[in-house]
Design a protein around this nucleic acid. Structure first.
Lengths: 200, 200
DNA sequence: CGACGTCTAGATAGATCGCTCTACTGATAG
DNA sequence: CTATCAGTAGAGCGATCTATCTAGACGTCG
C-alpha cells in the first residue's frame, strides 16, 4: 500500500516510508525501489539524502524509529496515574494497535534487530543503542516510582523484552494472547516489587 | 562458514544448512546459492527434493527446527530435579550457547517468524504452529508439576516469550544480561505460583 | 543387455537487487 | 541577466536472486 502524498520534505517521507516497511518486512525484505514508491520520491533522492546508501538510511531509521517509539510509550506512562497502570496500558495499547493494523505494527526495530545481529555490525550497534536508551528511560521511571537502582534496571529489561517477546507470538498467530498474558504478569511483578520494597 | 562435508543424505544436509542460515540471517537474508554451498549440494537438488522451491523448503525447515529445539529444551527439563530448576537451566543453557556461538544461535525460528508475519502466509502459519506446539508441551510439563490448567497456559506463554524477547536483546547487544534477568524472573514467577497454589 | 526412475550437477533465464550516472528544475547570489 | 547549487527525476549497470531446464550418473528392474 503506497503511502499517498504525505506532507513533509522528501527526506522525511523517505524516512517515514522506510520505517513503516522495516517494521513489517525487515531490512533485507525491504527494497529501495519500494521505499521510493511508498515515499513518492525519486530514486536518486535516496542517495542524495543518504550518501551511505541503504545502510546509512537504515541506521538513521533505526535511531529515529527508536526515539519516536520511546516517546510514544513514555506518553502512555505520563497519562497513567501510577507506574503499574502505565505498564498495563502500554501492553493493552500495543495489543490494540496490533489488532487495528492487521498485526503489522508492533516494535519498529525488532525484526531488523534480529536480521542484522549476525550480518551487519553498523546496524546491529544502532539497534543495541536504541534498546539501551529504552532501558535507561524505563529505569528513570521505575526509580522515580521508588524502586531501587539495581532492581530498576532488572525490571526495565524484564518488561521491555517481555513486550518484545509477546510481539513475536502475536504477529505469528494473529492473536493478542501473548500481550495480554505479558501485560498482566509485568504489572503483577512491578506491583509486587513496590509492595515488598516500599519507597526509599 | 561452509559446513564441511556432513554425513547424511543431500536432502538432510540441505535442511540442516538452511536451518543454520535461517537462525542467523533469516528467510530473506538467506539465498539458495548459499544454502547449497553450505550443504555441499548441487543447486538442482534443492528443487528436486523441494518442488515448492524456497517457500516449501522454508516450511519444512521451520517445522523441523521447531521440533528439534523443542526436544532440546525438553531434554533440559528432563535432566532437572524440578520444574523451577528446569526453567532456570533452560535460560542459563541458552545464554551459554549464545556465548559460545558468537551470539548467533538463539531461537531457530524467531527471526523468520517476524520477517514473514506480514508477507508470507504459509510461512507465518508454520511459525504459529511451532509456537503452539511449544506452548502445549510446556503446559503439559507445568500441569504435571501441579499447576492448574488455565494458569499453566498463561505461564507457558509467559516463559516462552520472555525467552524469545531476551534473545532479541542478547543478540543485539552481544551480552547475556537479558537472559539472566529473564531466567531469574521466570523461575521466581513459577516458584510463586507453586507456593501460592500448591498441588491439585 | 536395455529401460526406467531417482538423484546429482550445473548452465541459464528472467526478474530484481543496490547503486551510479547524467540530465533537469527551481531558487538564490552576484 | 548568468552562475551556482540543492534537490528532483529516472535510465541503466553489474551483481544476485529464485526458478527452470537439460544432461549425466547410478542403481534396479524386466
Amino acid at each position: 500500500m503506497p503511502t499517498p502524498d504525505q506532507p513533509g520534505t522528501t527526506r522525511e517521507r523517505i524516512l517515514d516510508a522506510t520505517a513503516a516497511l522495516f517494521m513489517r518486512y525487515g531490512y533485507t525484505g525491504t527494497g529501495l525501489k519500494q521505499i521510493v514508491a511508498d515515499a513518492n520520491a525519486p530514486f536518486g533522492s535516496v542517495y542524495h539524502h543518504f550518501p551511505g546508501g541503504k545502510q546509512a538510511l537504515g541506521v538513521e531509521v533505526i535511531h529515529r524509529s527508536g526515539a519516536m517509539y520511546g516517546e510514544l510509550v513514555m506518553s502512555v506512562f505520563d497519562a497513567a496515574p501510577d507506574i503499574v497502570t502505565g505498564v498495563r496500558d502500554c501492553f493493552a495499547g500495543a495489543a490494540e494497535v496490533l489488532r487495528t493494523t492487521d498485526y503489522a505494527d508492533a516494535c519498529p526495530i525488532e525484526t531488523v534487530a534480529l536480521e542484522v545481529a549476525s550480518s551487519n555490525e553498523q546496524l546491529r550497534l544502532a539497534t543495541a543503542d536504541v534498546f539501551e536508551r529504552w532501558i535507561i528511560e524505563a529505569v528513570t521511571r521505575f526509580r522515580a516510582a521508588g524502586i531501587e537502582a539495581d532492581c530498576a534496571r532488572e525490571l526495565a529489561v524484564f518488561v521491555i523484552f517481555l513486550l518484545e517477546g509477546a510481539f513475536v507470538h502475536c504477529r505469528a498467530t494473529r492473536t493478542t494472547e501473548a500481550l495480554e498474558v505479558a501485560g498482566k504478569r509485568a504489572a503483577f511483578v512491578i506491583e509486587s516489587e513496590l509492595r515488598e520494597r516500599p519507597a526509599r
